[in-house]
Design a protein around this nucleic acid. Structure first.
Length: 103
DNA sequence: GTCGTGACTTTAA
DNA sequence: TTTAAAGCCACGA
């Protein structure tokens, strides 16, 4: 039998499904996970990702197209996005209109 | 079982 | 335009 999947488990699955070169917002992931108001929790899940996780967590950004991280992590995510061909403005923003994943 | 927390979002000033 | 405050809810201790 299958165990009841948790919100966390769904978030992993959804993020893993974000195509290369595209991004999704925390709210998008939350909605796809079945809890439209749990955007904050998506961030919480990513914050505590297992060390060796291969999830493309860098493809998740906030509603304004900005990266919700700071310091080194911010830089790492920006680099990862640019490495996929996603343009990041000098303000550290991504054009959601052009890169947002639409399932 | 309860409580504090926060990689969010929206609304108001 | 920018900044503040409140609502939201799953997770870990």
């Amino acid at each position: 039998m299958f165990e009841h999947d948790t919100f966390q488990q769904r978030v992993y699955q959804i993020i893993a499904a974000i195509p290369y070169g595209q991004v999704a917002t925390y709210g998008d992931v939350a909605q796809l996970a079945g809890s439209p108001r749990a955007a904050r929790q998506v961030g919480g899940v990513l914050k505590r990702l297992p060390k060796g996780s291969k999830l493309p967590w860098h493809r998740v950004i906030n509603r304004t197209g900005s990266i919700s991280l700071i310091g080194d992590d911010l830089m790492r995510q920006r680099d990862a996005l640019e490495a996929e061909g996603i343009e990041v403005s000098d303000d550290g923003k991504v054009s959601l209109e052009h890169y947002r994943w639409q399932p």
